[in-house]
Write a protein that binds this DNA or RNA. Structure first.
Lengths: 345, 345
DNA sequence: AGATTTTTGATTTACGTACATCAAAAATTC
DNA sequence: GAATTTTTGATGTACGTAAATCAAAAATCT
């Protein structure tokens, strides 16, 4: 049987009240006595029963999630995963509030962070936009003792506790490697289509892609980056022009969103099969394109995992428990038409 | 605030004792009363506080894990993940016992299942070997009301509750697809190296590999399967002979274990770079070979995830709770040298 | 030594559920 | 309508921890 506070009291030869004072470091315990209790804890291998403690405290975990609004399919998937987690959160004493903020809008995001702060949550998860005012707001939260997890897009230098997202440099490298190997000896330049260079994850992916291309496929020409603002219509226009300008285009790496435009442009130009295409994020559109062969490989981050990981980490931080790094690492999924999971997920 | 049993009693106009009788379906409640309580539960949206209930019951979850012994690196990794999960299981009321059984030994496995049964656990996780006696033993456990999860290798037709492992047909297809595309227009046959055709996962992988090769790369010749019994020494010998027989060999798909022998044979023959190699499972040896270029891609199943998933599922089954399929799907990791996670994991 | 402060003990209530007991009320049977 | 059975209520204890109160003991200071 696991030892309880009573066992510690007996072992240390003190009263329950004193054990409680030590465990919850309340004042009024001489250091000799404190030591005795701590020794008892160590020898018996006592571990606080978090469930019982939470019950006694009627503890709940008020969390705030800040997500971008807009029609970005990945973000909407993220939100739906979050709502699902909320629906079954009853058993976990979670009390989650969602705040929506226009995408790429740093002032609005900073304001939302201040709003979140007023609610005195135990933790905040935020899809970060890299801007000084956002960094500042996150810093403020951390100083207040609120745990902060960045979600999908990181915010280095803000003091956030954890990043729940993929290694985007590695993602870019992987895309470059796959594209290079899929093309083999085939001639022609490759293009990179990004959303915006203002977001950290896109910059990281580009960096990784360029690095691996120059290391391993030095002879391959990489055309200047196209920024499609994650907007399908704009993307379609820009890719259409790109295809016209480059009749010998061998491959495209689309590292942002707006894949609907990319797919449309490729198919309209009749180049769906001849241009090797690697894109990000599994959505109904990109899934269909992968199956039809318009897209050759998809890199994906599992939104459900990211949400659950963020919640786990925030809870652990609130309880002062350690985080298991290996468990919280969000992996880069690589999907070919052959290992696509079933639709319903 | 979440409603409690007291709220239900008030709402239904009955006593706490009656609510308790309904909730834990004890006898002695007229169906009219029962209905009234159930309606109250529904309208208030009551969900039993599992933590409090477990506390009151002093419930624990006695689980048995049955793993193959031997020096298979993946299995040892699995066991170490399991031990790690056990070490931090104090807070989760888990009481896990590990049984070791010689690999590929159906009678021993069946005996271990019977042994497990005697311990009256809440659940059993087992790395299955496909044999009638094993299927029979699993069936028996299920009939006793013990939840059974197959781990890594499945056992269809046994009535097991869940399979915690990857879709091995999809894994084989993915390997075939990658190998085909990496080889591009290059000439030469490819070879398949398996452990044993007696294990389900190996058979599934082979099936997937063959299917995709004949669908998408019909002109590519696939040599007869080599069975290396997951034994590094035997594998090295067999692959050495294979390389000698086929100087024009373009690729190898190793779908089992014993990669150490494969790597040694390729490097000894000086064909490490010229033969495109795809293998399974990330181990220190395979990791090094991926980084050096001897292996071109690794398919991996994350042992930590499998263990944690098996535990979660067994717990959920023991509590009569539903399993979230999307969360429990074990994905096939594809590692290139570019997206290899850091060593310590 | 006496007064004062600090430390410790003893005890109680609470969290939400499980489970047991005994008495009271209601329904059923004869 | 009385006797019997079934159903329901009232109450208490337990699980392991948190948190509070008040008294007792010990340490510190003057």
């Amino acid at each position: 049987m696991r030892p309880t506070v009573h066992d510690i009291a007996a072992e240390a030869g003190v009263s329950l009240a004193t054990v409680d004072r030590v465990l919850n470091n309340r004042p009024g315990v001489r250091s000799v006595t404190r030591n005795r209790v701590e020794r008892a804890i160590a020898t018996l291998g006592y571990v606080r029963d978090v469930a019982a403690a939470n019950l006694a405290k009627s503890r709940s975990y008020p969390l705030v999630f800040i997500l971008p609004s807009g029609e970005n399919a990945f973000m909407r998937g993220l939100e739906s995963e979050l709502r699902f987690a909320m629906s079954r959160s009853a058993a976990e004493r979670l009390d989650i509030t969602i705040l929506s903020v226009p995408a790429f809008d740093a002032p609005a995001l900073a304001a939302a962070l201040l709003d979140a702060r007023k609610r005195r949550p135990a933790g905040v998860a935020v899809v970060a936009v890299e801007a000084p005012e956002v960094t500042e707001a996150v810093k403020r939260l951390c100083e207040d003792g609120v745990s902060v997890v960045t979600l999908v897009s990181d915010l280095p230098g803000s003091g956030r506790d954890h990043f729940a997202g993929v290694d985007n440099v590695a993602a870019g490298r992987t895309a470059g490697s796959l594209l290079g190997r899929f093309l083999g000896g085939r001639e022609g330049p490759v293009a990179v289509l990004a959303g915006s260079m203002l977001v950290r994850d896109h910059r990281d992916r580009l960096e990784g892609f360029r690095a691996v291309t120059s290391e391993d496929f030095a002879s391959r020409q990489v055309l200047p980056v196209i920024e499609g603002q994650d907007n399908p219509l704009l993307v379609e226009k820009l890719v259409g022009a790109l295809l016209e300008r480059n009749p010998d285009l061998a491959g495209i790496y689309s590292l942002g969103a707006g894949n609907r435009g990319l797919i449309a442009a490729l198919e309209k130009a009749g180049r769906a099969k001849s241009v090797c295409t690697i894109a990000h994020e599994l959505t109904p559109h990109s899934r269909a394109a992968l199956l039809s062969g318009t897209i050759d490989a998809l890199l994906n981050q599992n939104a459900g995992h990211e949400v659950r990981s963020a919640i786990r980490v925030l809870k652990a931080k609130a309880d002062g428990l350690p985080v298991i790094a290996a468990q919280e690492r969000i992996r880069i999924d690589i999907f070919l038409k052959d290992n696509l999971p079933l639709e319903q997920e």
